[in-house]
Design a protein around this nucleic acid. Sequence first.
DNA 1: ACCTGAACACCGTTCAAGT
DNA 2: ACCTGAACACCGTTCAAGT
Lengths: 259, 259
Amino acid sequence: MARTATTAAAAPARRAVGRPSKGAIKKEAIVAVALEQIDKVGVYAFSLRDVARSLDVYPATIYWHVNSKDALLADVAGAVMQEVTPPRGKSSWQVWMRDLFFRYRAAVQKHPNVAQLIGAQLVSNSSLRTDLIDGVLIALLEAGATEENLLEAYNCVISSLIGFMTMELAPMPSEEVSQWADALKERVRSISPLDHPTLARYLPKLANKAFIVRWQNGTEVPLDSSFSANVEIFIAGLEGFLQKKTRAVAASETRKPRS
Amino acid sequence: MARTATTAAAAPARRAVGRPSKGAIKKEAIVAVALEQIDKVGVYAFSLRDVARSLDVYPATIYWHVNSKDALLADVAGAVMQEVTPPRGKSSWQVWMRDLFFRYRAAVQKHPNVAQLIGAQLVSNSSLRTDLIDGVLIALLEAGATEENLLEAYNCVISSLIGFMTMELAPMPSEEVSQWADALKERVRSISPLDHPTLARYLPKLANKAFIVRWQNGTEVPLDSSFSANVEIFIAGLEGFLQKKTRAVAASETRKPRS
DNA sequence: ACCTGAACACCGTTCAAGT
DNA sequence: ACCTGAACACCGTTCAAGT
């Protein structure tokens, strides 16, 4: 992989520049084991010493291949992000973007515990997925983005893309889950219809399927229809945002829109 | 506060039911100190032993007032979430919702490190902010939500509300930030205009202001205009989503819309 | 270049025992 | 009811030293 060379270029020459030299293999093994561990025990309980144990080496060994725990986590996030960017086909930007959203969902559903890494942590330095950024920009320009609103539109794409899944797969309070679930259910049951008639009325519809009122996360209760809704809402909203010309002008002068 | 009594009701009677008895004061002091610590060192470096030191007590003392580190973090998140729900005034649902978004932003900007707690962690059990959920439901019903789409719309509100800020305030790789920033800047500079012409072209516009291509987070470089765009995109998209009747019917029969 | 072996300075949590 | 004092089983990271 060319990535080894790229990394070495930026790094303080900690590794030989030329061949992988079996070191590259070890590095990827470490990332693979780390991903396995995270899948198994979650980001919270994940430890470098565990991956060292899995590889039958001393903890310090890990540090020859990787600069820190954070750097390893970044690599793990990058690994999961591979292949989410759809190929730039002949389809419309809406189709491409929908594809992007669902590919991200599929990727992160395979490794649910990595969602919080991508969403809330580094976001995601080393994994600077050039093709993703490029693809989004191209789609946005095709959608009519201008110099004035490209940045904003881009940020909205990324946050919508990642935000929902981060929440859908957010880890539930560890350990005594059932006990906690019972407590939450009880609280849900005890909501006063007098103080909160609307909430009380619709609670049965929301229970365990709506953010804040659920006791299982997306690995056990996937929120498919809500995710789809989010995609459609975002794309429709984005269309409107990119169509409208500079707000102040449009509002004050009321020109004929060139749709 | 009545909250003490409520907590005791659900909990296994670990505290006397009647008066605060000075214990309630201690509990709130713990949460306050924890919030201070998190503001100072971040969620990652936050430790129970530090709050114990700040309060001049033994670590074990904390455990009389709080069940676990996670529970404490949940309480901290709850504290920050207080007062984000706007009062249910006479305004339109759009105005109320915009208000909600900007109040949340203001609240979490005061405690940026808590954003990842709210976004990626528990979401947010104990802090089950009844008034928030109720308010969102009321707004959605006013907007025309039906039995069929209320759940989806609700989930989209929550994820849009929280998702953007979680990313805007996501912690940058700790410690040697400047070193890391330089590396990222270098990589940004070295992007090949041949492989990625679009990206290369617009990179100056994105640099340090766009997700994935920034080396400072929202505490140092706030993304105000992008946040506003996100609010407008979401609300506009939501309007469309709630307006449209059952998709299949509308598509196949092409009835006159009763707008 | 890659790994060992050991150490440092921390953690969260538990538990008997005090008052 | 509330806190002490000490212990248990861990961490991430560093560093001389080996090969």
